[in-house]
Design a protein around this nucleic acid. Structure first.
Lengths: 365, 365
DNA sequence: ATCTAATGTGGAAACGTTTCCAGTTGGAGA
DNA sequence: TCTCCAACTGGAAACGTTTCCACATTAGAT
């Protein structure tokens, strides 16, 4: 109706014939007001289509009711789901989500944090290349701003929501070893910018060592190879002796299967594969993917809950790691004696059996 | 260093021994200042770690430098990628992204728009159940707030970034028909809350009609069936005569393959399948998925560009649809004469051939 | 009838900016 | 020396809220 661009509480007060203080009290139910004036104010507000200006409120209350969130990329479903979890948990709390993406770039990380801070975010939830190296972030913490990380393993001075990458990777090594794999490889994307990837390798490596197995091959690849099965195949070619590959995420694991197919290798007969993350599609594949199942959305929710508690004055400490689950899948079976050339190879039972059984191992720390 | 929670321009001015007006001019490079005072202000700001309060600025300038964005869910990679595109395009423009998700709920849609408006968003980018029914949204437009939709087909009174769902679906019908399919089905998730789904069905239906083929079966399913291949199989069972299914998105198409497998049907020999969206993983499958390739990220970028232009005073009109591409895949071949029971069936040539050739049809409107 | 207390009310300050405007300075030209 | 103008400067208002405080009104108690 009214062409007024934006109607303020002053306009409402004027229309209702009272002071702004009274109008504010009525509209917020924050103080006494006679039935009479209450009615007038409410009607005026309704008629004029009044709504509070969050900016005005933020300025006066020193709270923007906004939570800043930084993730490497929303194109990676794992982060997207985590953000979805954050958003879901925040929704209804009155807090809104301010989003930023760094594209796995450390400089962008810092710029983004500074941007979020200058937007007066009341709290920060982040996954970064190197949280501990971010001056902006540590400053924020020092100033008492609630900060909570996602995906990062525990880090001195930070609170984080995470799965224990090291332990989960050990579990994969265990599964590999138990069916008889000796020569294994870890396929890593963004090894240098992802502590997750590094910790997974560390756990995988540690467990192999502990079992007296050869060290796993560390195969680092770039964005290009990850999205181009032909390039990936060219790389895999250089590791003909491996009988099993642990990929640092499910998408990569599926690419490995494709690359193997291009090379004429059969999965799992010629090469076993396991992934990480537990994306839904892995279960639907013709050869279901063995993987570590995680719940990014739960991670986001936990991070948001921590922030919310902080914001309400409580100061929750570090929570234990979120659970993960080794999901058995047909991509992982005993190595093919033909390919494995170092004497002792395990003649494990069937393959298809393990695949369709949903025997899963729940681990929790 | 200083334990001061937040340092304002007033503090800086005080430290530099000048008025706030001068400090503001220096810090913004927005007016004259002697070299002397300029130097003092800049040093004070640096020493005290001053940064502008976006809130203060927003209040005085009436611009929050914030763009509100509403999508059904970030758990759906298609939307997540679109948001990533928006974010990427916005980054560097000074605008920040305020995110909200509705979970495909019309009521939540409206509440979210109102929330974003009350947060003083300078513009809105949205994908909703029913943009045209949203009072909050139409009000926003009437007030002159830049609004741009994503994914929705053109709608009176709105500007949208989209692919032509109707045409794309016709293309699928054409591809189905050309290899000889007559009895086809359209598998729809969230038919009632997604105009995309409805328009795809409409296009598919129209093209079948135009070719004198039987109307495609409309198979509506819920969230539960979509994520549970067993349930999906039970439903597919009821349509034994179909030789090809067009699923309203790729994830669903992959689920169909799984369900078919559970029923002992072979894809593509017993059932051809095509999807929509063109997610990357479709290419990596053992039986690569035939699908309509789209670029959600480009969609987000376009929406953001439109908004940015609006914000700079230009008023760009509706742009043409974004291009789509029919991606051939091994899931689509000629129907198996054995299954097709109505007399005239096409004895098309090979199957595997069509699969591995990457002959793709580019369409644009 | 007076006193107290509770209730209602609105003016004004504060939050952090930017910008208008008026004032002060200094130097150049007459 | 006087005038004028440009360059610089800072006070104050405004943006939309909330909240403190003081004031007025009323009802209840003595």
């Amino acid at each position: 109706m009214s062409a007024k661009v934006s109607v303020t509480i002053k306009d409402v007060a004027l229309a209702a014939g009272c002071g702004v203080a009274t109008a504010s009290r009525v509209l917020n139910n924050s103080g006494p007001a006679s039935a009479d004036v209450r009615e007038r104010v409410e009607r005026a507000a309704r008629d004029m289509g009044f709504s509070f200006s969050a900016t005005g409120r933020a300025l006066q209350s020193r709270r923007s009711m906004t939570v800043g969130c930084l993730v490497p990329s929303l194109a990676n479903p794992v982060f997207a789901e985590a953000v979805q979890g954050v958003q879901a948990e925040l929704s209804g709390s009155g807090y809104q989500l301010l989003i930023s993406c760094s594209n796995y770039d450390e400089r962008a990380d810092n710029a983004a944090i500074e941007m979020l801070l200058s937007k007066d975010a009341d709290a920060l939830i982040a996954t970064m290349v190197a949280p501990d190296r971010s001056i902006a972030l540590t400053n924020a913490i020092r100033r008492g701003l609630p900060v909570s990380l996602m995906f990062h393993d525990p880090l001195e001075g930070f609170v984080t929501s995470y799965v224990d990458n090291f332990e989960a990777a050990r579990e994969v090594a265990r599964q590999f070893a138990e069916v008889g794999h000796r020569r294994t490889g870890f396929l890593a994307l963004r090894f240098s910018t992802s502590d997750r990837s590094r910790n997974r390798y560390a756990g995988f490596h540690a467990e192999c060592r502990a079992r007296g197995l050869p060290d796993p091959a560390l195969i680092e690849i770039g964005e290009a190879e990850a999205t181009h099965p032909e390039s990936l195949a060219a790389i895999l070619c250089q590791y003909p002796k491996l009988t099993a590959i642990f990929a640092s995420n499910d998408f990569l694991a599926i690419s490995v299967q494709k690359a193997a197919r291009l090379l004429g290798w059969r999965v799992p007969q010629d090469l076993s594969v396991a992934g990480f993350d537990g994306i839904e599609i892995g279960k639907l594949l013709e050869v279901p993917l063995a993987t570590i199942e995680t719940e990014p959305e739960a991670m986001g929710r936990q991070a948001a809950r921590i922030i919310l508690e902080h914001l309400q004055g409580r100061a929750p400490g570090q929570l234990p790691a979120l659970p993960f689950l080794f999901r058995a899948g047909a991509t992982l079976v005993a190595p093919n004696p033909g390919k494995n050339d170092d004497g002792r190879d395990a003649a494990q039972p069937s393959s298809a059996l393990l695949a369709e059984t949903s025997s899963q191992t729940r681990t929790n720390r």
